[in-house]
Design a protein around this nucleic acid. Structure first.
Lengths: 153, 153
DNA sequence: CAGAATCCTCTTTGATACTG
DNA sequence: CAGTATCAAAGAGGATTCTG
């Protein structure tokens, strides 16, 4: 009997792996871009600098908290700049940095693929869901499949 | 006095906006790719088909639950296929579909940018954090800044 | 105007135990 | 082997209130 249980050893391995995972730059970038309002903010700033209020309007879906937090993260990453003009009332402008602009071609590739293939994804989903609902229906009719069909949503 | 409060109107506008947001294919794709284990799974399957257990090993950071759920989502999206061989014990193979493979060039662009620029992002973060910690330090010394500096973590 | 702070809810993720 | 089911913890996100 060792000092650590099998569960502990597995957990350790997992933690070690997560470090390596966190170090993967592709993942780090995708996680950032996948955040809820990042793509929209970048898209809006592609057209030029924007004041905070302008962003809040054009991205009306985001709460004030999320908008501010997301902008801060992007500023921290050096992808956009925040310029405060200490007038009364204050004025804050956000703009893409050169680093942020360098990301745009990549985003355009993503957009291109998405626009060309998202319909295929949607139809794949429909097919997958149809098949599942029909299968569980059969289960009920013939009583052959005891495994639950609880997924209605 | 109108029937709805300003808060309600804002909330309505937000909900309407979220619909349009959800319909944006770029966002939908980025959210999918930004999910915690998606990029790793796709990367692994780039090398060829993999059995469930093989994926579980090479992506040891993911819990069994997350791995299964993520694989299912990707299968549902038509990005990968799941082939069940009803032997004893059962055998399940995952592989990229043509649709999934068509995504690889896009991912390579993302990887290329990430590898070239993630260092810049890291140094931007360091600079940002340094500046902030120095600023709040000054505040304490001179007592000019009453706004809390509670963020130690 | 452009946030900061606080409270609270819903979703995501992981650990654990069980199964065909 | 390849999952499913359940529960608990963590985190994301939103509503609200207050401020320089």
């Amino acid at each position: 009997m060792t000092t650590r249980t099998a569960a502990q050893r597995r957990s350790d391995a997992r933690i070690a792996h997560q470090d390596r995972f966190a170090a993967c730059s592709t993942n780090r970038l995708l996680e950032r871009l996948g955040e809820k309002w990042v793509a929209l903010i970048l898209k809006e700033l592609t057209e030029g600098p924007r004041r905070y209020g302008e962003l809040a309007q054009s991205i009306a879906g985001a709460s004030q908290k999320m908008l501010t937090e997301t902008l801060r993260r992007l500023e921290r990453d050096g992808l956009l700049s925040r310029t405060l003009t200490p007038s009364v009332p204050v004025r804050v402008d956000y703009a893409l940095t050169p680093l942020g602009r360098s990301l745009l071609p990549v985003l355009r590739e993503v957009t291109r693929w998405a626009e060309q293939n998202m319909a295929a994804i949607d139809s794949a989903r429909t097919g997958y869901d149809d098949q599942r609902s029909r299968a569980s229906h059969d289960d009920e009719q013939r009583g052959t499949g005891p495994h639950g069909r609880r997924g209605q949503g």
